[in-house]
Amino acid sequence: MAERAAADRLLIVGSNIRNQELLAAFIERLGYTTLRADTLDALTQILDAAQPFRFALVDVTGFDLAIWECCARLHARDIPLLIISPRQSVAVRRLGYAHGAQAVMEKPLIMRELADAIHNLLQAVP
């Protein structure tokens, strides 16, 4: 049962509370549950506790460079990673891919595109 819950659970990371709420509501409408990390500390605790989830969406806006270390830890656990970057930031895009992102999407996201990206990335993972 716990395994099944973990299979439907997506980690969302972001520093803007309203963004996190909107993202969580959207993902829940897609039929998944969410695990939220609104701060770097919360994210570190989730990673330290090895809480199970199947996929991670990380909005790097507002975090310091330590966020990339967390991304690398996610990648090391073979968690598919979607990085959400501020508008037109080539540096973030490069850093994202360098730290294991499967995809980097720029804000504002188009809901339909995000749904497709999540769906495709999850299907690609066995």
């Binding site: 972001g14 803007n16 309203r18 959207f26 909005d59 959400i84 804000k107 996201l109 188009i110 809901m111």
Partner: peptide, 13 residues
């Protein structure tokens, strides 16, 4: 309460 957002466009939200 800092309800501003930028993850999606206002049109979508």
């Amino acid at each position: 309460e800092v309800q501003a957002y930028d993850i999606f466009t206002p049109a979508e939200v």
